[in-house]
Simulated scan of single mutants.
Amino acid sequence: MVRFARSALCVVIAASTLAHAAPGKEKSIARGRYLVEISGCNDCHTPGFAMSGGKVPEKEWLTGDQLGWQGPWGTTYPPNLRLSLQKMSEQEWIKFARTAELRPPMPFWALRTMKTEDLRAIHRYVKTLAPAGDPAPAYLPPGQEAKGPVVKFPAPPK
């Protein structure tokens, strides 16, 4: 019963957010959801998404993960985008997407090549999601031991 009530509340909040969106923004928000879904954002930034074949409820999307990605660069963790993007304006997000050089395995070059309209759409979609989850663990430099599980990458061939 509690689970049903929470799900119903999420649907009402999402519908309310979309209903109050400025004309044209509703379509942009839907496009942002689509882009998040097909571009692989959830594969890393949503706990258990890739391992479950995408069977994670939308209310849990983009909350970051405790699973580390470890290689010659150290150990990185997928940040909680719902918390990060809530703090950024649309223009700040676009500037970040165009200039950031992030550690592996984040394909930052993909963000750089996205159309501005698509970056706006992603930002608008993520902003419709309520802040949820906790910040991801901090980056660990090479040689520091991660406390939780990690996916290990070999050093690239020379």
Rank of each mutant, 00 (worst) to 15 (best):
G68H: 11
R31A: 12
V36N: 08
N42E: 04
Q86E: 13
Y77Q: 05
G74T: 12
Y77N: 04
E37S: 10
S52K: 01
D43W: 05
C41V: 07
C44G: 05
V36C: 14
C44R: 05
G32L: 08
Q86M: 05
P72F: 15
W61L: 02
N42D: 08
K59H: 09
T63S: 11
C41L: 01
E60S: 14
G40K: 03
W73L: 13
W73S: 10
G40N: 04
G54D: 03
G54E: 04
P57G: 07
P57A: 14
D43H: 05
S52H: 00
D65N: 12
T75W: 09
T76N: 08
N42G: 03
W61H: 14
T75E: 08
G53F: 05
Q70V: 13
N42T: 07
G74C: 12
L85R: 07
E58I: 07
K59T: 11
G74A: 13
G71N: 14
G32N: 10
G48M: 04
T75P: 02
F49T: 00
G53S: 03
F49P: 00
C41I: 04
W69A: 11
V56P: 01
I38H: 09
R31F: 06
E58F: 07
L35R: 12
T75Y: 09
P47T: 10
N80E: 08
P78R: 11
S39G: 13
T75N: 06
T75V: 15
L62C: 01
D43R: 04
E60T: 03
E60A: 11
Y34T: 11
P57H: 06
Q66C: 05
G32C: 13
F49W: 07
G53V: 07
Q66F: 08
Y34F: 13
S52Y: 00
W61Y: 13
R33N: 06
K55I: 09
M51V: 05
H45N: 00
L67M: 11
E58M: 12
D65P: 02
R33I: 02
T75S: 00
G32W: 06
C44M: 04
W69E: 12
R33C: 02
L85S: 04
P47S: 14
Q66W: 11
Y34K: 14
W61T: 03
W73P: 03
H45Y: 01
A30C: 09
G64A: 03
R82K: 12
E60M: 14
P47H: 11
